[in-house]
Nucleic acid binder design. Sequence first.
DNA 1: TTGTAGGCGTTATCAG
DNA 2: CTGATAACGCCTACAA
Lengths: 341, 341
Amino acid sequence: MIQKKITLKHIARELGVSISTVSKALKNSNEISRDTREKIQAFARLYNYKPNNIAISLKNKRTRNIGVIIPDIVHHFFTTVFRGIEKYANQRGYNVIVCVSDESFDKEVINMEMLANGSIDGFIMALSAETQDKNDFNHLKQVTEQGIPLVLFDRVTEQVVCDKVVINDEEAAMQAVDLLVNSGKERIALFTTETYLNVSEKRERGYRRALEQNGIPYDEDLVLRLPFQFEEEDLSRPFFETRRFDAVLSVNEVFAIRGMRLAGKLGLRIPQDISFIGFTDGILSKYSMPTLSSVAQHGEQMGEVAARMLIDKVENEYDETDPGSYRTEVIRASLVQREST
Amino acid sequence: MIQKKITLKHIARELGVSISTVSKALKNSNEISRDTREKIQAFARLYNYKPNNIAISLKNKRTRNIGVIIPDIVHHFFTTVFRGIEKYANQRGYNVIVCVSDESFDKEVINMEMLANGSIDGFIMALSAETQDKNDFNHLKQVTEQGIPLVLFDRVTEQVVCDKVVINDEEAAMQAVDLLVNSGKERIALFTTETYLNVSEKRERGYRRALEQNGIPYDEDLVLRLPFQFEEEDLSRPFFETRRFDAVLSVNEVFAIRGMRLAGKLGLRIPQDISFIGFTDGILSKYSMPTLSSVAQHGEQMGEVAARMLIDKVENEYDETDPGSYRTEVIRASLVQREST
DNA sequence: TTGTAGGCGTTATCAG
DNA sequence: CTGATAACGCCTACAA
């Protein structure tokens, strides 16, 4: 027994009234007599009438959809942010369309274009690695020029004028280094990404500033730059074998975990011989052996803030051309101490 | 300089032709003279005309959107499946709208209803724990009765007639137990979920069958049922202290990892004194110390298959009332051996 | 070769 | 109180 969706027109025909009468009756307009209203409402309930979202979107030029574009979905931090976005958006009656850029510039562009043609009311996104590398943000500018609100989070750029949500990466890195120094460490290595990411850069800057403030000379030899996905530990092994260091600050979680594994194999005790602090307080930090001290980025909060900023823009008038309309919210990271320090 | 979206109407007005002429010209219809065609196309390119998705959706009664409803997004397995869905769907020109049920029946219902009103062409979903517990699937039935295609994956139910994608959980559990037995283990514990999940049940069944086949008596005392999110290890500690066992099969990854931690603290050597196998070959399995042998569920493949089944249904006619129209695809799990066995 | 008209489902305005 | 009409943006069968 297939029961296809029913429309205003069907109801009107069945009840021998006009479409507009049905429409008003269902909105409980008191333009319509109590009698017909009740009759129509009863009928609608019976046949489980629900207005068609697409038609309403077309009429209102508002979809109540938010487009989210992230570099990767199998990624603890991004999904955490996503959860924040989704929860908040749902509360305000919005749905979320996700596209994954896969760290690729082209996919980012394609996805944005697909969604920008009416499918969504605004974008929330984190830039792909390739986009940051190329330093090409025309697709973002096009979107904002069309009057579509955009909120960047985490992986942001100064070259696009829009709302942004970031964490205080630099300070957080400084705190982490301070902690290591205070626990008596003197030769602190940095594990960072090979490709340019604004967050890596900010964390590195914090690392250097903290060293300086603590009177420790910066040593390029103690910085290890790794590719995103490396399968073999061989890449970092030479580093361990040729450098002398007693602590590691890592700009992400995985590099730190791999480092700890290798340190373990090399017979180093954590944290006595070497301690570790990672960024992104994800699952691995909690469950690793030993557990990893980590800079919590409060992704869910970040997502919530981003969604709030976006929906506020979507629902309210603002002067798109005035830079004063846009803000950058800074989420304060916090250091979670665990066994690795 | 704000450049709002342009429509057929604008082009028509500017060029002094009719809307349908523009429409045809942009489709390169040779109903239209080469001259006007080129003029119109040039103009459209100049102003970056892109057809409005919403209008097309309304016209075609097809949105090219897929609704995905999953219990949780910060969850390695689900995101892996999601990645498979998203990749495949994108290839075929579909976008993905995600809603998270948060393991709640009500949210699942609300989300489905929101999306079912025209926003999507079909659903892919994994049932929330609460839904499986309540055993109430009316919202799913309603959707299928409206002729909206539905594909269930992983967390499925026999009570809804639709396409499904599952893994051979029972066999996989048996293989895992066999492996443990073959490596000389004799007292094999099972860590499973407290709440009912079809997958947990299937894995438990496999566990029992394998024991039987290996001539090992089933011992209810060796089954530990844990709540979903438990923060304290205290919950499993008594189990470790009062039971004697030399291996653990866990229906998920986290329970296994926590078990390994505790075993480590209690001075047990892994795998000599006690070995572990988990389900869901996620990040934790790869990065834990020791690494965890695990049943890989091939989530990405699962997502791809689900998306293929769904889109095929969306794009092709089929007899909704004929049970023969629906299939259940079984993905074969595989056992990844690591250090914990 | 171009244009008109009707429709997708809804809402808002205006007439009756 | 009720209904006709136009509009959102697009497409297409059918005139002209």
